[in-house]
């Protein structure tokens, strides 16, 4: 695809280093609280250094739609296991096309097996919009 990758913008330039992490055994309402408190839309589920999954606002929505009780449902029952990841050097356009093709809104950023950040559709969209906006003339 696209023009956003053409000028060398990479995930490094638009990711957030403030990743909210939690364990799979924590409850759904705790996940919601952490996302609200930290003003993020996802939390990465880790065990030791491994990424087990990701939980997003959309997963919370699905759980509510299924009638699950948030305080007795564990994150492991609602998370997406083994999420796709990118690295800091992945072109922004590649990350964006992964999101649009697969309906993801967040991708964990992993360098040499270590979780270093998260990149969101919003951050990539902001770059895309800025780059594509017609220049004032």
């Amino acid at each position: 695809m696209t023009s956003v990758s053409a000028d060398g913008t990479s995930v490094r330039d638009c990711m957030s280093e403030h990743v909210v992490t939690m364990r799979a055994t924590e409850t759904l309402d705790r996940a919601a609280q952490m996302m609200v408190e930290r003003e993020v839309g996802s939390a990465v589920i880790t065990r030791d250094a491994d990424i087990e999954g990701i939980i997003t606002e959309r997963d919370v929505l699905r759980a509510v739609a299924r009638g699950l009780v948030p305080w007795s449902t564990s994150v492991s029952d609602c998370m997406t296991p083994k999420p796709a990841t990118v690295s800091t050097s992945t072109p922004a356009g590649t990350a964006l096309s992964m999101m649009l093709e697969n309906n993801y809104r967040h991708l964990p950023v992993v360098d040499e097996g270590v979780l270093v950040g998260i990149v969101s559709l919003r951050a990539l969209a902001a770059i895309a919009a800025a780059k594509e906006a017609p220049a004032a003339s």
């Binding site: 759904l28 309402d29 919601a32 996302m35 609200v36 408190e37 839309g41 959309r58 929505l61 509510v64």
Partner: peptide, 14 residues
């Protein structure tokens, strides 16, 4: 869905 997330964080019964 953000509003729903907030309701769950606050312990509301959906």
């Amino acid at each position: 869905e953000r509003d729903l997330l907030r309701s769950i964080a606050e312990g509301a019964d959906a």
